[in-house]
Simulated scan of single mutants.
Amino acid sequence: MHAHIPFSTDRLDGLLDASGIDVLIVTSKHNIQYLLGGYYHFQFDYMEAIGISRYLPILVYVKGAPDKAAYVAGRNERDSVQNRIGAGYWMPPVVFGSSTTVEAMTLALEHVKAVATSFRLGIEMSFLPVDAADVLRRELPDARIVEAMRPLEKLRSIKSAAELDILREASERVVASMMDAVSRTRVGQSKREIIDHLRRAELSRDMIFEYALVTVGTSLNRAPSEQRLAPGEIVSLDSGGNYRGYIGDLCRMAVHGAPDGELVDLLGEIEGIQQAARVPIRAGLTGREIFNAANEALARSPHGSQMHFVAHGTGIVNHEAPRLTASGPIPYPADDADAPLKAGMVVSIETTLPHARGFIKLEDTIAVTASGYQAFGDSGRGWNPISS
């Protein structure tokens, strides 16, 4: 059984032990997908609401005893589970029958009480509905409840070779989709139309389109709108495309016609910051050193005082561990800023310049290796031309 489990049980057990957790009750779709090696029930890929409640899958994992794990599935999930098992992938014993959050938690706790001797429970507080939490408090009133987000996040932070291959492919497909969208973009088209080009391009590459943050011209507004591209204007394309559960998140630039000298210089400054931030990346480096290198480059740049640089972890979740700064666009504690990076971690680095010419940005995906780094989807970094 252990040979087929798609994550390191020893690493997870150590993280749980350090957090004072004996039993995990996992309720987030992303962590269940990770712990089950990519499995998810297709019916609720878009929305969880159904009937009078919502779909709530639950995975129970007992520290040091993966054979005591169980997966609580929805009533209509049997076919999906059978396909998964039939394909030879790991799946713990499955408990079918839930159609509400209360039923799902009731079934999960029946299993917990049958297999656990200690009730130090790790839960994902941001992903546990109130009515299911009420069931937990009622059925196990003396249980010690611990937030499980951090150990699960740290488990996911070091990617396997297979995960890195998926992230590389996700990144390359996003950039290829952007180039496809640029080739279809014309003067007079709206941001909604440009985003639709990108959506179709990602879907054609077997990706799930998650989002696109697009600017046109001098506007810094990145939301979809009817704003239309005028001759000579620039376009920023920042998109997250999901490939087999992992997010390709990159940003590239385009311009109608040939870029003038000022635009070339501005994007060149941003490229300089991006490359400077890459130089020190390797296993053993602390995340703070990435920011030190970027800040030194910003200090030398003519527009450095106007630019914004950030580095963050990425994978199944955008802005996951390693968490390297507390002052980025998504606020969270910089718990990993002074911890050594490890081979297999993946970091997004991005430099943004809100300028009178428009919103200019590059965002890259960087995998940490023992001796340096690998950049995924590293093409299309200059001004990509939009035809008339």
Rank of each mutant, 00 (worst) to 15 (best):
P57M: 01
V60F: 00
V62E: 11
K63V: 06
A65E: 12
A70K: 02
Y71S: 00
V72L: 04
R75K: 14
D79A: 14
V81L: 07
V81F: 03
Q82C: 03
N83V: 07
I85V: 15
I85N: 04
G86T: 00
Y89L: 11
Y89G: 02
W90A: 07
M91D: 01
M91V: 00
P92M: 06
F96P: 04
S98V: 00
V102Y: 05
V102N: 05
T106M: 04
L107D: 01
A108L: 08
A108C: 08
E110G: 14
V112A: 07
A114E: 15
V115T: 11
T117K: 14
S118Y: 02
R120E: 11
G122Q: 13
G122V: 08
E124H: 01
E124R: 02
F127A: 13
V130W: 09
A132I: 11
A133R: 13
E139R: 12
P141K: 06
P141S: 08
D142L: 09
D142H: 10
P151R: 13
P151T: 14
L152A: 04
E153T: 12
R156T: 13
K159W: 08
K159V: 05
K159P: 03
A162W: 06
E163F: 09
I166M: 10
I166R: 13
L167N: 09
R168Y: 10
E169L: 15
A170M: 01
A170N: 01
E172V: 02
V174Y: 04
V175E: 03
A176K: 12
A176Q: 14
M178I: 15
M178Q: 15
M179D: 10
M179T: 01
V182P: 03
S183P: 06
T185A: 08
T185V: 02
V187A: 03
V187L: 02
G188R: 13
G188C: 13
